[in-house]
């Protein structure tokens, strides 16, 4: 990998579902250590963009380079080699509901490292849960947790593999203002502690302001505007302004 190459480089990404064109030439670069937020209305293709990044959706056209490797035509094994370096936090946590929190975390860890000892598993689980402030939930089932707690555990599961990139899909959606702020602050503290590169999908302006050092606004399948929160706030573009009202 070239020294100054971006960790994520998306060029001319197109994606269509039936008659509906969702992405129509998206270009995104995310450098190492950056926290980039993608803003956009519901259905604008934000989630589709990050799903294409991990191979959950296949791009119709375009190049997606992650760690300087084009992932669009990788076989499953090569794609998995990339995936183990990326943490993905799903909108509703996507915790395995037949497993306890401990089993959720152990399951992910054991599949990443077959030879990991039980002591190491315990240490990593404790650290991950401590990071998200939910150590007491270790033996609970996902159904016993609130929406905010599920998101925190989802974050712990993404973190436990010590990823270089974390992708957040609507990390604060469906939460009250206070819990949403707590989650945003937690994301910032994790970014600082582990020096991860983050790509955050949201339509929550408070979350974008707190967590992103660069914001991209997606509209009509392309990146419509780009800048820091302060720059975009002063924009004269009516579409951009509508996000700050």
């Amino acid at each position: 990998m070239e020294k100054n190459a971006p960790l994520i480089a998306i060029t001319n990404l197109h994606k269509t579902f039936g008659e509906n064109t969702v992405l129509n030439g998206v270009d995104i670069n995310v450098n190492k250590g950056e926290y980039v937020v993608i803003l956009g209305r519901s259905g604008s293709g934000k989630s589709v963009t990050i799903k294409c990044l991990v191979g959950l959706e296949k791009a119709d056209k375009g190049v997606i380079k992650v760690f300087d490797t084009d992932i669009t035509n990788l076989n499953e094994n090569d794609l998995n080699a990339i995936r183990v370096r990326i943490g993905f936090m799903f909108q509703n946590g996507a915790l395995y509901d037949s497993m306890s929190i401990r089993q959720n975390l152990t399951f992910t860890l054991k599949h990443h490292n077959k030879n990991i000892s039980n002591e190491d598993i315990e240490t990593k689980i404790t650290e991950a849960l401590d990071n998200v402030g939910l150590l007491e939930a270790i033996d609970k089932m996902p159904s016993e947790l609130s929406g905010g707690m599920r998101k925190r555990i989802g974050m712990a599961r993404a973190l436990i593999i010590q990823p270089e990139i974390i992708l957040y899909d609507e990390p604060t959606s469906g939460l009250d203002t206070i819990t949403a702020r707590e989650i945003s602050e937690l994301m910032v503290s994790i970014q600082k502690k582990y020096k991860t590169t983050s790509l955050i999908i949201t339509h929550d302006m408070a979350c974008a302001k707190l967590t992103g050092n660069r914001i991209l606004i997606l509209n009509n399948g392309v990146i419509h505007a780009e800048g820091t929160y302060a720059e975009l706030e002063k924009s004269k573009d009516s579409w951009v302004k509508s996000f700050f009202i």
Binding site: V84, F90, Q91, L95
Partner: peptide, 21 residues
């Protein structure tokens, strides 16, 4: 029902992005 519910709640996607087949 079990796999359908896992699909709807993105648990199958979560496995896939964790490099678990």
């Amino acid at each position: 029902a079990e796999l359908g519910s896992m699909k709807v709640t993105e648990q199958i996607d979560a496995m896939e992005v964790s490099a678990i087949n």
